[in-house]
C-alpha cells in the first residue's frame, strides 16, 4: 500500500470531517493501527480543524458554569478543601478545661475555708478560755473584795524598812477563820534563787514565826496570797530569803514590817 498516495488523496481530511461511510471509517481505523504515519496525519488534521473552529467562537464557556446542567453534581470530583474546624469539639474541650479548672478552684477554696474555720475554732476556744479566766478572775476578785470588806477583818499596813523604804504591803487578817491575805503588790519580783517569806511576830519578846514562803510570787497576777495563820500575831513582816525559806528571818533582808493595832 502506498501510504503517501493514500495521504495525498485527501481521504483523511474527509475522515476527520465525518464525511465517510461506516465501512470507510472502519477501514481507516484499522489502517491507523498499522501505520503510525497515518495516525500522525489524522492527529494534525484534527488539531488544525479544532483550532480553526475554535477561532470562530466569540467566547468560551467554562466547564464549571455548565456542569450544573448535567444533573450529576452529586458525583463531582471531591474537593480537597481543608476540613472545617470542628467547633463542637473545640467548645466541648474548652468547657471541660473550664470545668476542671473550676473544680480545682472550688477544692482549693474548700481547703482554705476549712483551714479558716479551724483557725476560727481555735480562736473561739482561746476566747472561751479567756472569758472563763476572766470570770474566774472576777469571781476571785469579788471574793477578795468580800473578804476585805468583812467586818471581822483586820487590815495591817506593812511599811518599807531601811534600804527598802519604797516597798510596802498589806495584810488582811481574818481571825475568825485564821487566814491572812497578803497584798504584796508593793514588793519587787524575787530575784533568781530567792523567795519572799512571810513572818508572824510577837513583840515582847520579839519572836518570829514563819508563815511560809510565797513560791509563786513572780507568776501571780494580783499579788494577793492567802496564808493560814493560827498565831496570836502582833506584827507581820516579809523578808527575802534563799529558796526554800529560812528558820529565822534574815533581818537585813526585811523589806516590810507592820504592827497590828492594839485595839482592833
Amino acid at each position: 500500500m502506498d501510504i503517501k498516495a493514500y495521504i495525498e488523496s485527501g481521504i483523511l481530511e474527509l475522515y476527520v470531517a465525518g464525511q465517510l461511510s461506516e465501512q470507510e471509517n472502519q477501514d481507516i481505523y484499522d489502517l491507523l493501527h498499522q501505520h503510525p504515519e497515518l495516525l500522525q496525519e489524522v492527529l494534525e488534521i484534527e488539531s488544525a480543524v479544532v483550532k480553526l473552529t475554535a477561532a470562530v467562537s466569540p467566547h468560551a464557556i467554562d466547564f464549571d458554569s455548565f456542569k450544573g446542567k448535567l444533573g450529576l453534581t452529586d458525583t463531582k470530583v471531591v474537593d480537597l478543601k481543608p476540613k472545617k474546624p470542628n467547633w463542637m469539639s473545640y467548645t466541648g474541650w474548652a468547657a471541660s478545661i473550664l470545668l476542671a479548672g473550676g473544680l480545682l478552684w472550688t477544692l482549693n477554696q474548700k481547703t482554705e475555708l476549712e483551714l479558716q474555720l479551724q483557725t476560727a475554732e481555735t480562736d473561739k476556744q482561746y476566747l472561751e478560755t479567756q472569758i472563763e479566766d476572766a470570770r474566774t478572775d472576777l469571781a476571785a476578785t469579788k471574793n477578795l473584795l468580800d473578804v476585805i470588806r468583812d467586818k471581822d477583818i483586820i487590815a495591817v499596813p506593812l511599811g518599807g524598812q531601811g534600804d527598802y523604804a519604797t516597798s510596802f504591803a498589806k495584810v488582811y487578817w481574818n481571825k475568825a477563820d485564821n487566814t491572812i491575805y497578803v497584798d504584796a503588790e508593793g514588793l519587787p519580783n524575787a530575784p533568781q534563787g530567792k523567795v519572799w517569806q512571810v513572818w508572824s511576830l510577837t513583840l515582847n519578846p520579839l519572836t518570829p514565826t514563819s508563815l511560809g514562803t510565797i513560791d509563786d510570787f513572780n507568776t501571780d497576777d494580783n499579788k494577793i496570797f492567802t496564808i493560814a495563820n493560827a498565831n496570836e500575831s502582833q506584827a507581820f513582816g516579809i523578808t527575802l530569803e534563799p529558796e526554800g525559806g529560812s528558820e529565822s528571818p534574815t533581818m537585813d533582808q526585811l523589806y516590810t514590817l507592820g504592827v497590828i493595832d492594839a485595839t482592833p
Binding site: 479544532v50 483550532k51 473552529t53 475554535a54 467562537s57 468560551a60 464557556i61 466547564f63 456542569k67
Partner: peptide
C-alpha cells in the same frame, strides 16, 4: 467527570464555533 471536563476543555470552544 474529570475525563469529561478534560474533553470539554479540548473541544467546547470548537463546538461553540
Amino acid at each position: 467527570q474529570v475525563a469529561f471536563k478534560k474533553l470539554y476543555g479540548m473541544y467546547s470552544k470548537s463546538i461553540h464555533g
